[in-house]
Design a binder for these strands. Structure first.
Lengths: 157, 157
DNA sequence: GCTGAAAACCAAACAAG
DNA sequence: CTTGTTTGGTTTTCAGC
C-alpha cells in the first residue's frame, strides 16, 4: 500500500470531485488554471494509482424507505473464521460497511433496514446464522446527523 | 419527511448512479429504453424531491495519508446540549459521520486520522474540549473491510 | 409524463513541445 | 507534465405530443 505523493493540483481536483463527482473536468480545469487534458490525465493517473476508488450518487436512505440505521458489533467464536465470516457478511445486502475493530467485539458493521422488524430478521436470519459468529450487540442510530467524505484540506504536505 | 414513490425506472436510474455517479445519462437511457431527456427530467425531479443528496468521488483514505479510522462513542453531560455539541463536532474536520444513538453513549462519530498521535490530539484537543461532552470511548478500526452504498434492489415495492 | 432535435458543451485521444 | 486540436458523444433545453 504505497502512498502516492499528491501535489496541490491533485488535491484540488480531488477536493472538487469529492464534493461533486459529476463536476465537468473542464470546469475543474478552469478553477485550477490548467488545461482540460491535463486534468484528464491526472485523474486517470490517480485512478490507476488506486487513490480514486470510484464515485457514488448519495441518496437519502429514508427517502428510499430505509428508516432504521444501526451499528452491530460482532464477536467471533474463533478468530480463525474472520475471513470466511466477512465473506458471508458481504452477502447480507443490508450491510453497507464492515470493519475489523479493537475493543468490544471483533467486527463492526453498519446497516440500513426498512423497519425494526426487518432489522430483527436481518440480525437473526442474516447475521446470527453465519457460522463463526458468537454474539452480536446492536446499536440503533436514532438519527444520522451528518455524513461526508474525508476532508483533505488539512493535510498540507 | 415524505416518501416519494419511485417507480422501476427511477430505481434503475439510481441503481446505476449509485454504482457510478459519472455514468452518462444517455447510457442509462439506453439501458432503460427511454430517451435521454426523460432520464434527465427524472433525475432533476429526484434531486428536487431530496432523494438525491449529491454525488461523491470515493477516495482511499490510506492513499490520502489517513492510516487510522476510529469510531468514538460520546456521552453528554446534559442531553440539552445535544444540538450545540453536534455543531461543534461538525467543525472537527476529521469527523466524517455523526449519529445520535441508543445504548452506550449518546453520539457516535466516525473519523479518520493520519496516525495515532493525530487521533490523540483530535480526541483531546478537538472533541473533549467541547462543552457538554462528558466522556468518550474510542474504538479503533483495524481495517475497513468494505464500504458501499445501500442496496436498493431488495425493496421491490 | 414522454419524444426528437438543436445548440452548447464535454470527454477522450492525439501529436507535439 | 503540459498544451491545443479534433472527433464523437453528452448535456440541456424546448416545442410538441
Amino acid at each position: 500500500m504505497v502512498k502516492t505523493s499528491l501535489d496541490a493540483i491533485d488535491r484540488k481536483i480531488l477536493k472538487y470531485l469529492i464534493k461533486n463527482a459529476r463536476m465537468p473536468f473542464l470546469e475543474i480545469a478552469r478553477e485550477c488554471g490548467i488545461s482540460g487534458a491535463a486534468i484528464h490525465q491526472r485523474i486517470r493517473k490517480l485512478d490507476e494509482a488506486g487513490v480514486i476508488l470510484g464515485s457514488r450518487l448519495i441518496v437519502d436512505p429514508k427517502m428510499m424507505g430505509f428508516d432504521v440505521c444501526a451499528h452491530i458489533s460482532i464477536t467471533l467464536k474463533d478468530p480463525q473464521l474472520l475471513k470466511k465470516t466477512v465473506e458471508e457478511l458481504r452477502k447480507v445486502p443490508e450491510i453497507v460497511e464492515c470493519h475489523f475493530i479493537t475493543g468490544n467485539g471483533n467486527i463492526l458493521v453498519k446497516l440500513y433496514c426498512v423497519d425494526n422488524e426487518h432489522l430483527m430478521r436481518t440480525i437473526f436470519d442474516g447475521i446470527l446464522r453465519i457460522q463463526g459468529i458468537a454474539t452480536t450487540e446492536t446499536n440503533i442510530s436514532l438519527q444520522e446527523v451528518f455524513q461526508r467524505e474525508v476532508n483533505i484540506d488539512f493535510i498540507e504536505e
